[in-house]
Design a protein around this nucleic acid. Structure first.
Lengths: 223, 223
DNA sequence: ACCTGAACACCGTTCAAGT
DNA sequence: ACCTGAACACCGTTCAAGT
């Protein structure tokens, strides 16, 4: 008479993948500070302690999330031209950081890099070496490129001045500006940064090409 | 008979300056995560709530701390040579970030820049303008330099591989390396990064000069 | 094997109350 | 004016207990 209970048993069992996915979603829309073990459990319909079966702790969770981002970035494709490969790779990293803004400031400072992270960086170095960089030059290139890419993302993240919030800021903070306390800054903001067509994001490729050109020149000189 | 109580009244009254100083000391030796309102109160011999008379909240406190760091950095001294002025300034910022490692990742992403911050950046832009940069070029220079400086500090902060902890890491994380999973990374680490004379910090000036040379070339081309 | 209840040792912040 | 006691609404994490 009684119908056998459906074999689904518990419709959505917890798994490391599900925990990771929910954690990414939480951080993607609310920032890293909205990712708490309690809220994550709530999102998944379990208590916060259930998560500890699938991740060692919050740090382990974030390590795994960072590796997901590196997985999304993938590896640079070397087709004989290190410069365009490194250019595409830099833009790819930047786009990943725009999709996952919580990763800015987290990504580059993890103590325990995951496999996707290591594979990515191995491929970057491999691409440089194939492009004619010796070990020391590859280390320089790696350093200057990654510093720039992550630094740009960090400085852009909470840029005090954007065209959008120019209005509200103007009332409070910008009073000393009118008084002429910061003439050069005022000029740059009024006549450049806050002009309609300006987008700080466009500065990225300018700086990137400057660095790539500089590396190119040093490579040629070494040959 | 009773001696008049010493006029010191309360030997160390709280003040914004004292709170700031104690907060800096706490963050300097324990990192930003060791700076809590409760611990800060303890350090000053008061309850955590007493602090709220001198700072609006923790964010306001950190804003003030960041401005102290900008104050320490000071303003670049322009003596007719923008390149050496910007070089010295970059190295000055880097040294400040080494003294106050907690400021890395915090410094560049404050929503409310303080007066020392604004004054510093006004002077940087002024130096570039005096050196012959038009507004757009000054914005590019500012962007690429600061991105690099802060990015370098961030990537160095928790560098997974240092000569010191090479030993302990080797046991656990580096197993796939031996298996040849990351040949280029392995080569770079073994034959370069972990060699006795190597110090990642030395990469800073190499990248800095690459960027300064690139800016110099673009300035000359524009003239 | 997997999840929960209850607890521990923390957080930032507020607010009425004391002096 | 300046500090405190007590409380609120949170944290991450552990551990014995349940199924």
């Amino acid at each position: 008479m009684t119908i056998q209970e459906a074999p689904v048993a518990r419709r959505d069992r917890l798994s490391r993948a599900r925990v990771l996915q929910a954690a990414m979603a939480l951080a993607d829309d609310g920032g890293i500070e909205s990712l708490t073990m309690r809220r994550l459990g709530e999102e998944l319909g379990v208590g916060p302690m259930a998560l500890y079966r699938h991740v060692a702790n919050k740090d382990d969770l974030i390590d795994a999330m960072v590796d997901v981002v590196f997985g999304e970035i993938g590896v640079p494709s070397f087709n004989g031209d290190w410069k365009s490969a490194m250019r595409d790779r830099a833009i790819g990293v930047r786009h990943a950081l725009l999709r996952h803004r919580w990763a800015i400031g987290i990504m580059e400072s993890r103590a325990n890099p995951g496999p996707a992270n290591l594979q990515h960086h191995d491929a970057v170095i491999g691409c440089l070496r194939a492009g004619g960089f010796d070990i020391a030059m590859a280390a320089h290139a790696y350093s200057v490129l990654d510093s720039y890419i992550y630094g740009f993302a960090a400085t852009q993240k909470n840029l005090p001045f954007t065209a959008e919030d120019a209005g509200e800021k103007a009332e409070t903070m910008l009073q000393p500006f009118a008084a002429g306390a910061y003439p050069y800054l005022t000029e740059m903001l009024a006549d450049h940064i806050m002009q309609p067509g300006y987008d700080y994001g466009d500065e990225f490729e300018l700086g990137l090409d400057l660095i790539l050109d500089g590396l190119d020149e040093r490579i040629r000189r070494a040959r």
